[in-house]
């Protein structure tokens, strides 16, 4: 079947090719670009997490910055405020993300569509508002900085980031191919039918929400050590919008679309910042072009061409 080989490109084969490219980056790129690629890879993973819920399960979250920010703050608080060391801080952040995902998922999933999106926005802004004002813990407007650099250098930590992200991608792809993972798409396409044939729809949605949040949260957990700091922007609603932007930029109906979208986002933003101080304007125009001209995303449009549908 022709479609099968394309699925492989958009799965293990694609991940292997991307992995090979990513692992050689520190050999020829300087520290600046190595770090930039690492940021792109983490944005990409965050967008993949978002897309498990959106592209695969059909639920639009407008608050995914919450998971990213809780992961980033969790690690930073563990390291800077509690002196837990890396293992302890990661465990703390993971517990925080998981706990908040279960709690907000339980409530948010009372609804779907626009009311679900509004609930995710409300919860994310609630977490943002509390952390912003709770200065003793979060450092307020300035955030937390001076995180000890893991493994001594950006290059060495780069490999940790890339390997961790590749492992996550393979795991997520394989999970989405299991019967349980495939149930996400069944629910997306027709929740009523799924209910009637006996799927426990609300439990599967909650699972998707928690998995999605954990993936984006893990990306955030690797982000604050990479930057050595974390600021409240990482929890603000505009970053939730940026994650949606990345996912749509790559394409939400392609597994690797959001991942490539995240990397592209970082590189386009960096390039625009080099050219002009008005880089947000450039991002806005590109975003508008995607929405109006290529709503299936860059990778999505490319795959259509390859399949000869374009």
């Amino acid at each position: 079947m022709a479609g099968k080989s394309f699925m492989e490109v958009d799965g293990p084969l694609g991940i292997a090719v991307l992995g090979a490219v990513l692992l050689t980056v520190p050999l020829y790129a300087g520290p600046f670009y190595t770090r930039l690629v690492a940021v792109g890879v983490l944005y990409g993973l965050a967008a993949v997490g978002f897309n498990v819920l959106f592209g695969y399960t059909g639920l639009l979250s407008f608050g995914h910055a919450m998971f990213w920010g809780l992961g980033a703050y969790g690690v930073a608080i563990g390291l800077v405020k509690l002196g837990l060391g890396y293992a302890g801080s990661f465990a703390l952040a993971l517990a925080l993300v998981l706990g908040v995902a279960l709690a907000t998922g339980f409530f948010s999933l009372r609804h779907t569509k626009i009311y679900f999106a509004m609930l995710t926005l409300a919860f994310a802004q609630l977490v943002y508002a509390v952390l912003l004002k709770w200065r003793d813990v979060s450092g307020g407007d300035e955030g937390l900085y001076g995180l000890p650099r893991p493994l001594g250098s950006v290059e060495r930590f780069y490999y940790v980031v890339v390997v961790a992200v590749l492992v996550m991608l393979v795991a997520v792809w394989r999970f989405l191919e299991t019967p349980l993972g495939l149930a996400f798409q069944t629910i997306r396409d027709n929740p009523y039918r799924a209910e009637v044939v006996g799927y426990p729809v609300s439990r599967i949605r909650l699972l998707s929400y928690v998995v999605s949040g954990l993936i984006t949260g893990v990306a955030g957990m690797l982000y604050s050590p990479l930057q050595g700091a974390v600021t409240p922007d990482s929890l603000y609603w505009t970053f939730s919008a940026a994650i949606v932007f990345m996912a749509i930029l790559g394409g939400t109906r392609v597994f690797l679309g959001p991942f490539i979208g995240g990397i592209l986002y970082v590189f386009i933003a960096n390039y625009a910042m080099d050219v002009t101080e008005y880089w947000l304007l450039v991002m806005g125009v590109i975003l508008a072009a995607i929405v109006y001209l290529f709503p299936s995303g860059v990778v999505g449009a490319l795959m259509k061409q390859l399949r000869g549908e374009g």
Binding site: F245, I248, L280, G284, L287, A288, I290, V291, Y292
Partner: peptide, 8 residues
């Protein structure tokens, strides 16, 4: 996203 682009 289109209206977010307008904000930027």
């Amino acid at each position: 996203l289109a209206t977010y682009a307008l904000i930027l």
